[in-house]
Amino acid sequence: MNVALSTPVADTARPKLEVQKLDAWFGNVHAVKDISLGVDARSVLAIIGPSGCGKSTFVRCLNRMHELTPGARSEGRVLLDGEDVYAVDPVYLRRRVGMVFQRPNVFPTMSIRDNVVAGLRLNRVRADYEAIVERTLTQTALWDEVKDRLDASAIALSGGQQQRLCIARALAVEPEVLLMDEPASALDPIATAKIEELIDELKQQYTIVIVTHNMQQAIRISDKTAFFYMGVLIEHGTTQQLFTRPERRETEDYVTGKFG
């Protein structure tokens, strides 16, 4: 941090998250091939590409969730603020790099309130839970909808509400980076719009990497976009440039809907 203060230029130049030559496998399947890219602090990177192109595997490598799958392994480096995440404790890492999954996965035995603070309570963090519940639910625009029934079971909520609750739950741990694996794919258009608004708000504070199969969504919410195809990073640039003036033929074919 002291370094950053004395050399502000270097700070903005260094990405929050830097991936270097990352490879990942499931058993013998080489799912992610030699990927290098950086994500700036407080920006949104969208990852697009056809199904099975390694998008999800890639983000799961960033908080080391990938290695929990039986038979999975990875090689290469992922730097968070210059520190290799594969050198730190994965449990700690995941508190700094939060994740929201494709389908809402609220804890069914817990109330709405307990779901929000689950990460804190399960990690035995003492804090002002009430304040955190209100803050994160307000951030995720859920507060007004649920403030009168915080003790109700979380599974009574609608799918869109559950997904925003999952985001609130991830935010309560105060991560620096938020990974989102197609967070709106199981939701209806209205709920999707709310999530997108939310992402726009969140990037003021957080660094966000979002996987999406919806190109319109990538255009609406992201600053930069990376296009993956068959485990390879084909193109990476600002969202506007990638969708309007793609450099690679494959990218152009994909964003214009010729395949995928």
Binding site: D89, V91, Y92, R95, N123, R124, V125, R126, A127
Partner: peptide, 13 residues
């Protein structure tokens, strides 16, 4: 993280 949380050593133990 606030105080009281598991340290990595705790978690591994």
């Amino acid at each position: 993280m606030a105080s009281g949380a598991d340290t990595p050593r705790h978690a591994h133990l």
